[in-house]
């Protein structure tokens, strides 16, 4: 555990050592405000809740979360520091977990900075606190799933732009599998059980399920499993690239 914390501390500080943190937070807050007020119409709805904010969050995450995860491994590979890291007394699991948790916490900080929105709504009306808490929990889970996918993809390349683009693509598929236009593609040839499995895999439907405030253990389990599976694949990729 100490080893994971050591990696976590370095990685978390690395976000703030460059303008990345500031740029990310500013753009995230600006866009989330834009979606909430202008497109989501928070005022026009005359309802004191954060629905317009959470509703567009997955789409915002789709482009912003890969920007956090793209550097995780690609940068280590490009600069050669991966050679240093893999010869220090860390296990690959320590490294993968430390990096993932640092990225997740950084995203958590950005998300926490949107709470003034919640405070304003609470001041204007009487929103359901439970729904807001569920919304933030769902947002963190979705973000964690995207980060795990992104970390995994970042481990495959030394080019951060490739890592970013592939991650956006992969997260898009993860978000929308089970949606009609993607299912149609499989409908003609895949057996019904596969179709059913695919439609249960959509991150967006699980996200919306949690958002409704009906916290179902299965939705949380879904996100936790996605995170666990992709982090395990991440470990395998790093180990596999050592060859043998």
């Amino acid at each position: 555990m100490t080893r994971v914390i050591t990696i976590f501390r370095r990685e978390f500080a690395a976000y703030f050592a460059t303008p990345l943190a500031a740029v990310f937070v500013v753009i995230f807050l600006f866009l989330s405000g834009l979606f909430t007020f202008n497109i989501g119409g928070l005022y026009e709805r005359s309802q004191a809740d954060l629905r317009p904010f959470f509703q567009y969050l997955p789409w915002l995450f789709l482009f912003l979360v890969p920007a956090i995860s793209m550097r995780l491994w690609a940068e280590e590979r490009r600069s050669g520091t991966i050679e240093l890291l893999l010869t220090l007394p860390f296990t690959i699991t320590d490294l993968v977990l430390g990096k993932f948790l640092a990225a997740w916490c950084f995203a958590g900080v950005a998300l926490a900075l949107t709470t003034p929105l919640w405070i304003s709504v609470a001041w204007l009306g009487d929103p359901d606190a439970g729904v807001a808490v569920a919304g933030y929990a769902a947002a963190m889970l979705l973000c964690g799933a995207f980060l795990a996918v992104g970390s995994c993809i970042s481990a495959c390349t030394k080019n951060q732009v490739i890592a970013f683009v592939l991650c956006v693509g992969a997260c898009f598929l993860l978000m929308l599998t089970g949606f009609p236009f993607l299912l149609e593609f499989f409908e003609s040839w895949a057996p019904p059980s596969v179709l059913e499995a695919l439609s249960a895999m959509s991150a967006l439907s699980h996200f919306e399920a949690v958002l409704r405030g009906v916290v179902d253990g299965r939705d949380a389990l879904y996100f936790v499993s996605v995170i666990a599976v992709f982090l395990m694949i991440n470990v395998v990729i790093i180990d596999w690239r050592r060859g043998g």
Binding site: A14, A17, S79, G80, E83, L84, T87
Partner: peptide
């Protein structure tokens, strides 16, 4: 170990 090119984290 000093790897080839002595890689270190540039932003630290």
């Amino acid at each position: 170990y000093l790897p080839e090119g002595a890689p270190c984290y540039p932003d630290m």
